[in-house]
C-alpha cells in the first residue's frame, strides 16, 4: 500500500540535479527535445548522449530506476527501428531476402531515430525522477506567468494541479477501501474472463466518483471559509530561487548546444 502511494516516480536525493531550480530543468529539457532532432552526425549524437548520461551520473540515481521507467518505451523504440529498416531504400543492399531488402541507409536511419527516442525519454524521465510534482507545478506556474496578460488562468491551473496531486493518495486509499467493501459483498475483481472483470470495476468507480464530488464540494466550502478569492493579491509560501548552480547548468547546456551545431553535418 505505502509503495503504491508514491506519486510519479520521484526518487528523493540531494544531488546537484535534484537541487537545480525546477525551472532550469524544465527549460533545458524543453530545448533538448528540439535539438535532439538537429543531430545528424556521429559527433553530434555523441555530444547529446554525453550530456544525457552525464546528467544521469550527476543525479546519482541508480540506473535500474531509469531502466524501469523505460520499460513501456522499449517496444516503441524497437518498432521504430524495424519500421525504418523496412521502409528506407538508400545505400547499399546489405541483406537480400526475397520479400525484403535491407539497405545500409535503413540501418543507419533506424539506429539514429531509435537513439533520438531513447535520449528523449532518458532526459524527460530524469526530470520526474529528480523533481517533486509540486516543484514542477510551481515551475510551470512561474514559467507561464507571462500568459496572464492574455487572460490565461495560470494560477487556477497550478492550483488545480496541486490539489489533484494532494488528492491522488486520498482517492487511492478510498479506492482500496471501496474495493475491499465490494469484495466482501462478493464482487470478484481477480478471476474470470476480462469482460466480467471489466464489469466488476463499475461498482468500484461509481462510489468513488460520488465521494470525489462530495469531497470537491466540501473542499470548495473550506477554501472559501479560509478566505480564498482567486489568485489576485495572494502571496506564496513556496518560492523558487535561481542560484549559481543554475547559471552554471545553463551555461554548460549552452556549450552542449554550440557543440551540437558545430559538429552537425550540413549538406
Amino acid at each position: 500500500m505505502s509503495n503504491s502511494l508514491i506519486i510519479g516516480q520521484y526518487v528523493p536525493g540531494q544531488s546537484i540535479v535534484h537541487r537545480l531550480d525546477p525551472r532550469t530543468k524544465i527549460i533545458m529539457i524543453f530545448f533538448f527535445v528540439f535539438i535532439v532532432f538537429f543531430a545528424n552526425s556521429v559527433p553530434s549524437y555523441s555530444i547529446l548522449a554525453f550530456f544525457a548520461f552525464g546528467s544521469i551520473v550527476l543525479s546519482r540515481i541508480p540506473f535500474r530506476f531509469i531502466l524501469k521507467g523505460l520499460t513501456p518505451i522499449w517496444f516503441l523504440i524497437g518498432f521504430t527501428f524495424l519500421l525504418h529498416i523496412i521502409i528506407t531504400r538508400e545505400g547499399a543492399v546489405l541483406v537480400d531476402l526475397v520479400v525484403l531488402k535491407i539497405y545500409s541507409g535503413g540501418l543507419i536511419q533506424g539506429f539514429a531515430i531509435s537513439l533520438r527516442f531513447f535520449l528523449l525519454i532518458l532526459v524527460t524521465s530524469l526530470l520526474t525522477l529528480t523533481t517533486t510534482p509540486i516543484e514542477i507545478t510551481d515551475a510551470i506556474e512561474t514559467l507561464l506567468n507571462p500568459l496572464k496578460k492574455v487572460k490565461f488562468p495560470v494560477h487556477e491551473l497550478a492550483l488545480m494541479m496541486s490539489i489533484s496531486l494532494r488528492f491522488i493518495p486520498t482517492l487511492m486509499q478510498e479506492m482500496d477501501k471501496i474495493s475491499k467493501a465490494q469484495a466482501s459483498r462478493g464482487v470478484d475483481f481477480r478471476t474470470g474472463p476480462i469482460k466480467e472483470r471489466a464489469k466488476a470495476i463499475v461498482p468500484l468507480l461509481v462510489p468513488l466518483f460520488v465521494s470525489a464530488f462530495k469531497r470537491a464540494e466540501d473542499l470548495a466550502m473550506a477554501m472559501e471559509a479560509r478566505g480564498y478569492q482567486g489568485g489576485e493579491g495572494r502571496t506564496k509560501l513556496r518560492i523558487l530561487r535561481i542560484s549559481g548552480r543554475d547559471w552554471v547548468a545553463l551555461f554548460l547546456f549552452a556549450v552542449v548546444l554550440a557543440g551540437l551545431f558545430a559538429t552537425r553535418h550540413y549538406s
Partner: peptide, 11 residues
C-alpha cells in the same frame, strides 16, 4: 469542518 480530509488544501 467535520471531514479531516476534505478541508486539507496543501500538499
Amino acid at each position: 469542518f467535520q471531514n479531516p480530509d476534505n478541508q486539507f488544501v496543501g500538499t
